[in-house]
């Protein structure tokens, strides 16, 4: 699993320039990052890593780092 791939997914879906998203980025940093964008990010992560998230999984995510940890937990 590559962290840079996850960051690229965020940048693509949020439609922001390269370098805008880091592991510390939260939804309050980017206008376009709302529930809809989150679901699109989740769908892209599921497809990229062959995993499946549940609604409960995303209740506490706040930062990009949280998503990385979520992917890692599902890959185990």
């Amino acid at each position: 699993m590559s962290v840079s791939t996850i960051i690229e997914i965020f940048q693509d879906i949020l439609d922001v320039k390269k370098g805008t998203v880091s592991l510390k980025t939260t939804s309050s940093d980017i206008d376009q990052w709302d529930s809809l964008a989150t679901v699109n990010i989740i769908a892209a992560l599921e497809e990229e890593f062959g995993i499946k998230f549940k609604l409960e999984d995303i209740q506490t995510v706040k930062t990009v780092q949280d998503f990385v940890e979520l992917v890692q937990a599902h890959k185990k």
Partner: peptide, 17 residues
């Protein structure tokens, strides 16, 4: 409706839940 730029990216979903 949920306002933009909140620190919780899934707050809208939480309302329905």
């Amino acid at each position: 409706k949920v306002i933009p730029n909140l620190s919780d990216p899934v707050l809208g979903i939480k309302l329905i839940k």
